[in-house]
Amino acid sequence: MYETDDPSIEQRTRYREWMNRSVGAGTLGFFLAVAVSVLASGPVTDWVLFAGLGAYYLGYIGYLAVWQRTGVRHFDEREAEIERRAASLTAVFVVSVTIFGLPGLVVVQGTDVATVPAFVEGVVWGYMGLVLVFLGLYGYVERRYS
């Protein structure tokens, strides 16, 4: 039988369960804290909210800790390929919106032809920021593979 250095599917499944439970517990803790703060009153609700936020952050830190500390792939290569393709399509969408949207936004605002809703302006500039992040990370990853 072929031997692989990678942990078994059972181990990977177990690690993924830990990760999901950690995130689930953190998210549940946050929602419970919000629910308590809505139903209760007084200064103690602030502490409940902070506790919920702490549980939420801890949940995600737990997720990252299991992911990083176990040192194994939690997703097999087909799932990783699906992620890569989805990320690539997302990048194409964001770049397309930025390429066509940003010059249009500047011209429309400069000529006062129409009033651009604030959320549209926020989306376009937000996507512009994402494009800059993408370009920076692209350069970083390219250097690692050169």
């Binding site: 039988m1 072929y2 692989t4 599917i9 097999d76 290569e77 087909r78 390929e81």
Partner: peptide, 19 residues
């Protein structure tokens, strides 16, 4: 899949020429 370290779905996709 367990023997070669991938999921059942990955083996299925390979067999169907989808991956």
């Amino acid at each position: 899949g367990d023997a070669v370290g991938v999921s059942r779905q990955t083996i299925n996709a390979i067999e169907r020429d989808r991956y």
